[in-house]
Every structure is written in C-alpha cells, then in structure tokens.
Amino acid sequence: MKDDHKGFSTTSSWEEFSKRTGIPLPSTPKIDRSLFSDSEIKCFESYFVSLCTDLTIYNQLFGTDESISVLNEFNGFVFKRIQRSFLEKICLKISCLMDPAKAGSNDNLSLLRFVEKAGSPELSAVYDKLYKDYESTGIKIWRNKVLAHTDLKTVMGKFEFKLKLDADNINRMVRDMQDLIDLIKDPRVYTDTEVTLPFGSDGNSFVSRLRKINSENNA
C-alpha cells in the first residue's frame, strides 16, 4: 500500500520552512553567539527580569486612574512616595543597563557590552536608536545629576532639563530593550516584559484588597 503521507515532515528549521513556503525569513543580525559567556548572559537576564518585575508591579499599582484613586483614598501621602521610589528604582536600573561597556578598567554588565562583543553593524544600529530614545527621556541626566549624585546647580534649580517619565515611555523603552536582548540571544523568540506574579501577591490583588477596605471604612 502506498503511503500518501510519506515524506511529510512535522518539524523543520526556519530555513527549511522558508524554502518550502516561499515566505522570506525575517532580517536578523548575524551574530556569533559563542562570543558570549553563558554566565554573563544569565546574570544580565536576572537583572533585567528584576527590572521587569518592578515595572510590572508599578503598572499594576499606578497604571490606571482607578487604581491610583484607590491608593490615594487609602493613604495618598504614602503611596505617592512609594510611586516615586518605584520610578527612581526603575530608572536607575534602566540607566545601569544603558551604561558604557566599561567604566575605566572595569567591565559593566550593560547592553553595550554585548553589542560591542557581537560586532554586528545591524545590532549596533538597533542599539543606537534605543540609546537616542533613552537620552530623549532625560533619564540619563536625572540619574547622573540627581539620583546617583547630588549636583548642586540641579538641586538648586539652576540647571534645568526635561524629564519624560510617563509610563508609556518607560514601558516602550523596556520593550525595546527586551527586543534587543532577544536579537542577541535568539531572534526567533519573543519575550514578554510583563512578569506573571503569584496570584494573590500581585499588584492587582493588593489594590483589590485596599478597595475592599476603603468600602468597609466608608460603610
């Protein structure tokens, strides 16, 4: 009996899929990934996941007018300071990841370290665009003049700069950073920047409990 399904393959590489279907492969930088240390990649990923976790909690707590209203009703003074602390922490982590590859003779675990190691013009172009976006937010100046150092002229209001700290800008920048990391690791992979937190321990659950307390207090 003839096997009509003979030669049918259920799995294939991206290259085989492209040849079979005629669909062109997405343009991705050619990178020798053997240049990267697995331990450095894992350390970098751990740091970035920490950033994404903070950003996820921030979005859940302060991402909507409704949740902010609940927090303000419970204790607006405290939660405004918590919101500020979250922003500072997130921006500091972003700045660290956007640092130069080296500080003097010391290596930095930054995105640029991996980009320079890759030696890919395409990857460098992606990074350059990301860095321009980073500079345009004012986070770099804020970190250098206020968060990491107390620049006298800045804190006295004699040096002014624009700071674009809205949630959309920060989320977009972190998304672009993740896209660059995916290009370095495996361009076939799309990694979400929103971290799935344990049920009941996430920001949404916290706001929900505060909403219930507010309702009981107003009853």
Rank of each mutant, 00 (worst) to 15 (best):
T10C: 05
W14T: 03
E15P: 01
I23V: 15
I23E: 08
P24F: 06
K30Q: 13
R33T: 15
F36I: 08
D38E: 14
S39L: 09
V49I: 14
V49P: 02
V49Y: 10
Q60K: 01
F62M: 09
E66A: 15
E66P: 01
G76M: 02
F77C: 07
V78Y: 15
K80Y: 01
Q83G: 11
R84P: 00
S85V: 02
F86I: 06
K89G: 11
K93W: 00
I94S: 08
M98W: 02
K102M: 12
S105E: 09
N108Y: 07
S110F: 12
S110M: 12
L112V: 08
K117T: 09
A118K: 04
S120T: 08
E122G: 03
L123R: 00
L123D: 06
A125M: 01
D128V: 07
L130I: 07
G138L: 07
I139W: 14
I141F: 13
I141H: 12
W142C: 10
R143W: 07
K145T: 06
K153G: 04
K158G: 05
D168R: 12
N169E: 10
I170D: 04
I170L: 12
M173Q: 14
D176G: 00
D176Y: 05
D176C: 04
M177P: 04
L180S: 04
D182N: 15
I184W: 04
I184H: 06
K185W: 02
D186P: 03
R188H: 09
V189G: 00
V189N: 12
Y190D: 12
Y190I: 15
D192R: 05
G200W: 03
G203C: 08
N204T: 12
L210H: 07
L210K: 07
R211M: 04
I213L: 14
E216K: 11
